[in-house]
Amino acid sequence: MTSIDGPPIPPVDGPFGVYVHVPFCSVRCGYCDFNTYTADELGEGATRASYANTAITEIEMAARTLGSVGNVPGVGTVFFGGGTPTQLPSVDLVRMLDSLDSVFGLVPDAEVTTEANPDSVTPASLDELRDGGFTRISFGVQSAVPHVLATLDRTHDPERVPEAVQWARDAGFEQVSVDLIYGTPGESVDDWQASLDHALGLEPDHVSAYALIVEEGTALARRVARGEIPAPDDDAMADMYLMADDVLTSAGLGWYELSNWARDAEARCRHNLLYWHSADWWGIGPGAHSHVDGVRWWNVKHPAAYAQRLAAGESPMLDHEILDPSMSVVERVMLEARLREGLPLGILESGRGAVSSLTERGLVEITGDHLVLTREGRLLADAVVRDLTP
Score class of each variant (00 low, 15 high):
Thr155Trp: 06
Tyr37Arg: 03
Asp235Arg: 11
Asp40Arg: 00
Glu331Leu: 02
Val165Ala: 07
Leu388Glu: 10
Gln87Pro: 00
Arg268Asn: 09
Asn117Arg: 01
Phe139Ile: 04
Val292Gly: 11
Leu248Ile: 10
Gln308Cys: 01
Asp246Trp: 02
Leu358Cys: 12
Leu323Gln: 09
Tyr256Ser: 08
Pro7Cys: 02
Thr54Ala: 12
Gly14His: 05
Gly254Cys: 15
Arg375Asn: 07
Pro158Lys: 01
Asp101Phe: 07
Gln175Pro: 01
Gly377Glu: 07
Gly70Pro: 00
Phe173Gln: 15
Leu379Pro: 01
Ala199Ser: 04
Glu159His: 05
Thr77Ala: 14
Leu200Ala: 04
Pro158Tyr: 02
Pro185Cys: 08
Phe24His: 06
Met334Trp: 04
Arg268Asp: 07
Val112Phe: 06
Glu349Phe: 15
Asn117Lys: 00
Leu310Asp: 00
Asp190Trp: 02
Arg263His: 10
Leu253Gln: 11
Ala168Gln: 14
Leu335Tyr: 01
Asp369Thr: 12
Gly45Leu: 01
Arg95Leu: 10
Val69Asn: 00
Ala279Arg: 07
Glu159Gly: 12
Gly67Phe: 05
Asn299His: 08
Ala225Gly: 09
Ser326Val: 06
Ala49Lys: 03
Met327Asp: 13
His198Asn: 05
Thr65Pro: 01
Tyr275Arg: 13
Gly14Val: 13
Pro108Gln: 02
Leu88Trp: 04
Phe24Asp: 07
Val165Tyr: 01
Trp192Met: 10
Asp280Ser: 14
